[in-house]
């Protein structure tokens, strides 16, 4: 399993467009992916656009992304790049 933490610094948070790009990217991987917001116990499923949107991540929230599976390395790189892309 790989885990990374990522702070949302974008003023608009993880709003609809980024949420759907993030979700579309996650769907490309076989690995099991979970997202926790601010160390909450509740896990969100990034392969579900509804789950990611309902997370309601705003500026300052810290996302913990856990990936387990054969393509975890590639997945983490990809998702990280997407989040960083939005945070410009």
């Amino acid at each position: 399993m790989i885990e990374i933490k990522f702070e949302i610094t974008n003023n608009e948070g993880l709003h609809a467009r980024p949420a759907s790009e993030f979700s579309k990217a996650a769907m490309k991987y076989k690995s099991d992916i979970k997202v926790h917001k601010n160390d909450d116990e509740k896990a969100f499923n990034p392969k579900s656009i509804l789950s990611i949107m309902s997370m309601g991540a705003v500026k300052g929230d810290i996302l913990k992304i856990q990936i387990t599976g054969a393509d975890e390395e590639a997945a983490i790189e990809d998702l990280k790049a997407i989040l960083e892309g939005f945070d410009k």
């Binding site: 608009e12 948070g13 709003h15 609809a16 467009r17 949420a19 509804l50 949107m53 309902s54 309601g56």
Partner: peptide, 13 residues
Amino acid sequence: FAALLESLGDEYI
């Protein structure tokens, strides 16, 4: 899910 999204701040969501 509709109720969950409606409770959020982002108008688009």
